[in-house]
Write a protein that binds this DNA or RNA. Sequence first.
DNA 1: TTTGACGATAATGTATACAATCACGCTGGG
DNA 2: CCCAGCGTGATTGTATACATTATCGTCAAA
Lengths: 243, 243
Amino acid sequence: MPKGLAERDPEAGPAQTASERAYIELRQRILDGRLPAGRRLKETELAIGIGVSRTPVRDALRRLSAEGLLDFRPNAGATVAVWSETQIEHVFRIRAMLEPYASEIAASQIRDDEVEALRRLCAIMEEAARRETQADLDTLAAANARFHRIVIDAARSDHLAKLITLAMDAPLTLRIFGRYTPEEVGRSMRHHREVVDALAHRDPAWSASAMRTHILSAIGAARRTRIAPEAERPERAAVGSRG
Amino acid sequence: MPKGLAERDPEAGPAQTASERAYIELRQRILDGRLPAGRRLKETELAIGIGVSRTPVRDALRRLSAEGLLDFRPNAGATVAVWSETQIEHVFRIRAMLEPYASEIAASQIRDDEVEALRRLCAIMEEAARRETQADLDTLAAANARFHRIVIDAARSDHLAKLITLAMDAPLTLRIFGRYTPEEVGRSMRHHREVVDALAHRDPAWSASAMRTHILSAIGAARRTRIAPEAERPERAAVGSRG
DNA sequence: TTTGACGATAATGTATACAATCACGCTGGG
DNA sequence: CCCAGCGTGATTGTATACATTATCGTCAAA
């Protein structure tokens, strides 16, 4: 098939290589739930769906497996990782250790423009929190993810950032806002503001503590976020519609 | 307990698939220093050396990259990750959070036979510590790695174990014993014994604290463990000193 | 009816050919 | 002497053919 990769779109996707595209696409499908926990992933199927060959799909699968988003058994394929309630709790406890640590370090490293960016994200999140549509929820989740990423990156340690990212992304932190009560949403927004203030004051202990509070307060909602693994049943009957 | 993730076990005999073999082989070479930090890894070269084709080598490279042992840039190949002193310090601080947490959980889950295994490993380590040859140092390092792995596994959470493993293995914890003073070695051995005793008592707080002490005490030696990245210049004119 | 073995089928594992890309040195001009 | 443009070789990226393995239905025997 012709590649037709003559265009270089810097904004729509930094995915230059097919492997990268496959990785980003699959990761997104897992995180937003289109590929539910427990689902068996078949390389050929995915390859056709994404529009690349099996090789880059395999690259992406291996990568996602190493990152913990997939369970992988040699000769038996990959399935979307299933998270028990206990394991989700563990992840939040770990986040509650790692992110405050990153915040503590970030406090002495963060630049003014990053603080500004955090403030803008706070405004965006507060605006989205006032409405209640699904689209707003998605906006909120996306802004929240960017918020945490900026803080983590401000610690100026790629390895640290990588490790925390692995801990964070694992059990779909994204969809947690759907489980928040209105009060919890409001509190979460106030937490964000306080984290920014603490960082703006370049106060490591305050930054860490505010972030810790923020994450620990989310565990309740996380417990309510049940992830139902897909039934083991493979879809025998082929779905007629392609696409 | 479901096995869940396909675990790599470096000591579990010959690997089944070529990808697994390549992964284990490369990982070992990185951890023991045969592939020094900064070294550029060429797929064809590695493939010939290991005796497989490029495909499984690429699988292994992608996996190691996701685990943070390699830096990877599209179209520019993979290099062994370089760890700055600051980053190594971060890793130990993170270990000092994660492993005590695992120990805390393990305290209420560990089986008697695992406690026994830990005691045996303590004896092995103490025996090796008495001598001072390089082989004994390797024995010590290997037993130490197994010790920590047993504790982590006793927490009965594959995802938790995976995360901690990523944090632990990253900057070659193995070679740290080479930097210990005799007093530090002795103290480390006593720490191990205390961790086991705390676990045997099924005391979560004690187990966590003993483990935290153990890891924090190692940071000094870790700081002394400088990792000199290989010069950027490949095998061109190797050591041609001008002048 | 149950159970076990067996074989067809579909998936994954591996190798290899080919395309795209990058690094580097060469050459020619200023 | 310096620098820019370009070609060449090496290296990675992708696709595909083939080998190997697991899965599951079928059939026969107890």
